[in-house]
Simulated assay, not measured.
Amino acid sequence: MSITADYHMHTHHSGDSTAPMEDMIKSSLDKGLKEICFTEHQDADFPDWYNLPEFPFILDTNAYREEFLHYKELYAGRIDMKFGVEVGMQTHIAAENTEFVQKGDYDFVIASIHLVNRKDPFYPDFWEGDTVENIYRQCFDSTLENIKLFTDFDVLGHIDYVSRYAPKGDTTYCYSRFADQIDEILSYLIKNDKGLDFNSKLLGNDISLLPNPVPDVLKRYKELGGKIITVGSDAHTPEKIACGFEKMRDIALTCGFKEYYTFEKRTPIAHTL
Rank of each mutant, 00 (worst) to 15 (best):
T171H: 09
A94H: 04
D107N: 09
L149F: 11
T131M: 05
A166R: 15
E145K: 12
D170C: 13
L156W: 11
T98C: 03
Y175H: 11
D160I: 10
K119A: 14
K119Q: 14
T98L: 08
D125Q: 09
E145M: 13
Y123I: 06
S163G: 07
P167V: 11
I113G: 00
Y136A: 08
H92N: 06
Y136Q: 08
A166W: 02
T91V: 13
D130I: 07
C174K: 11
F108G: 05
A179K: 15
V101F: 06
V101D: 02
D154N: 15
H114P: 09
L144K: 05
F178P: 03
P167G: 06
E133N: 08
H92C: 02
F153E: 01
L115G: 00
E128V: 14
F153H: 00
D152M: 05
L115Y: 02
I113D: 00
Q102H: 14
F126I: 09
V155M: 04
T98R: 09
Q102G: 13
Y175P: 09
S142P: 00
N134T: 10
N146G: 01
T98F: 07
I147S: 00
Q102L: 15
D154S: 07
L115M: 08
A111P: 04
E145G: 08
F150C: 03
Y136F: 15
L144P: 08
